[in-house]
Amino acid sequence: MNHAEEIWKTLVRATVDKKHPWRVVAFSTAGAKGPQARSVVLRAVNMAEHALVFYTDRRSQKMADLAHDSRVALLFWNPRSNTQLRVCGIAKPETSELIVNGFWDQIPEYARKDYATLSAPGDALVGDSLTYDFDTARMNFVVLNVKVLNVELLELKREGHVRFRCDLDETGHWIHQNMVP
């Protein structure tokens, strides 16, 4: 098995194991207001398309940033194995209503309120409580696909660090390059 395959299998594990350290990811964008980073949850992996799947609110700053520049950088950290994974790719909203509705149907009722606030995420809170409109929640829900263009893994070891990079070529194959740690 090559290094890229191992990384993808680990990412798939992170989508099903809620305690996996790669489940929560630093997601960075470069919007009109400059670079921004936030934590997001890895929801699915589409190995055939070399894509990672996240959820977001269409009204979020993240979506405005992606409208400005669709390039993203993701940072995964596993403290158990001292392994860092950096991923660069292009983020685009899923356009298939069938696919989006399939993900929406998996969200528990209690979690749907995250998309039902009348105000956008990050807006100033007026008063002491939020107002919800559950009829509009589905409209605010976005499935975000990140087409992975390259991955770089750094494993910190006492006996010597290991670092390599894999780039996706135009034929859909991963080109592996060992690197100086």
Rank of each mutant, 00 (worst) to 15 (best):
N2Q: 10
H3R: 15
A4M: 05
A4K: 02
A4C: 08
W8D: 00
W8Y: 03
L11G: 06
L11A: 04
R13I: 08
R13S: 13
T15K: 01
V16G: 14
H20P: 01
H20M: 09
P21S: 08
K33L: 13
G34C: 04
R38C: 06
S39T: 13
V40E: 02
V41S: 02
L42Y: 01
L42R: 04
R43K: 11
R43E: 03
N46Y: 07
N46V: 04
M47W: 09
A48P: 03
A51M: 00
S60G: 00
Q61D: 15
D65H: 02
D65T: 01
L66S: 01
S70D: 03
A73L: 00
L74A: 05
L75G: 03
F76S: 03
R80L: 11
S81C: 02
Q84A: 07
R86Y: 08
K92A: 10
P93Q: 05
V100R: 15
F103I: 07
W104G: 10
Q106H: 10
Q106I: 04
A111K: 13
R112T: 13
D114R: 14
D114I: 09
T117F: 06
T117G: 04
T117D: 04
S119H: 13
P121K: 08
P121N: 08
P121V: 07
P121T: 10
G122E: 01
D123Y: 02
A124I: 13
G127D: 05
D128W: 11
D128M: 12
T131K: 10
Y132E: 02
D133G: 06
T136D: 14
A137L: 05
R138E: 07
L144T: 01
V146I: 03
V146P: 01
V148Y: 01
V148L: 07
V151Y: 01
E152R: 09
L153E: 15
R158H: 12
E159F: 11
R163A: 06
F164D: 04
D167F: 09
D167V: 11
E170C: 12
T171A: 14
T171V: 12
W174N: 02
W174I: 05
W174G: 02
Q177R: 12
Q177Y: 03
M179L: 15
M179W: 03
M179Q: 13
V180F: 08
V180S: 10
